[in-house]
């Protein structure tokens, strides 16, 4: 190596050399045995039931509806929230929004909207990628029907729609369904903190209200 090597490469080689020295010439690499549960022992209906129960347990509100009733359910929820300006990702199914009240302003997200523009939205409606029943978790992967991460972060109220075929029982069943090249957000209940006397309080920086609609057919 020459003296012209940038500092980054010297640091890199030094750290890697230290590690190799520390490990010695022939470190033993232990096998990983995966004796833990990787599948599910629950019937599909029971998985959905567990999901609803666990999401509810973390103070998110769970609703169940059929495909045909989804637009009415959504309209009722939004009306009840009092929100006047609602954001949706660009790829959200138009059919879901057909029964919204006329005076409601529905904003389709655009790349040109900056954070301040997102901050004017009172509520956001998205689809989701995977639900995990055991932990009451919803995963978003920024697909066109879920939108970029900021869209589900800045507004204070998130309504998330999930279909039963997207819900799995355990964490090990969920990860193979996810694409690591996408930005992923796992959500388990509304934003919370336990920083004061380790008591859980809902509602800090993320959306303070989370509604989950399970589409049952």
């Amino acid at each position: 190596m020459t003296a012209a090597v940038p500092g980054r490469d010297i640091a890199r080689e030094t750290v890697l050399t230290r590690i190799r020295d520390a490990l010695g010439p022939d470190p033993v690499v232990p096998e990983v045995s995966r004796d833990y549960v990787t599948g599910s022992d629950l019937e599909p209906d029971a998985v959905v039931e567990r999901f609803a129960e666990r999401v509810d347990d973390y103070r998110a509100t769970v609703h169940r509806t059929g495909h045909a009733e989804l637009p009415a359910t959504l309209a009722a929820l939004i009306t009840a929230s009092g929100a006047g300006r609602v954001g949706v990702p660009v790829g959200l199914d138009y059919a879901w929004l057909t029964e919204l009240p006329d005076d409601l302003e529905v904003v389709r997200d655009q790349p040109t909207y900056d954070t301040a523009a997102l901050d004017t939205l009172e509520l956001v409606v998205t689809a989701s990628t995977v639900g995990i029943a055991e932990t009451g978790t919803i995963v978003l992967d920024a697909s066109p029907d879920q939108g970029r991460r900021a869209l589900t972060l800045v507004p204070d109220h998130h309504i998330c729609i999930i279909t039963t075929d997207q819900i799995v029982h355990t964490v090990p069943e969920a990860l193979p369904r996810l694409d690591p090249t996408r930005p992923l957000t796992m959500i388990s209940g509304p934003s919370a903190t336990s920083d004061i006397e380790l008591d859980r309080v809902e509602g800090v920086h993320g959306p303070r209200t989370l509604h989950v609609i399970i589409v049952t057919d």
Binding site: R54, Y58, P111, I132, E134, T135, G136, T137, A142, R148, R149, A150, P180, T181, R182, P183, L184, T185, M186, I187, S188, G189, P190, S191, A192, S194, R200, G206
Partner: peptide, 21 residues
């Protein structure tokens, strides 16, 4: 850690995502 089944938010990202973040 917090004694929860899952913490409220877990973020996973890989390098730079065009148009997001």
């Amino acid at each position: 850690s917090t004694g929860e089944r899952m913490n409220p938010y877990t973020s996973l990202w890989t390098g730079v995502h065009e148009g997001d973040g």
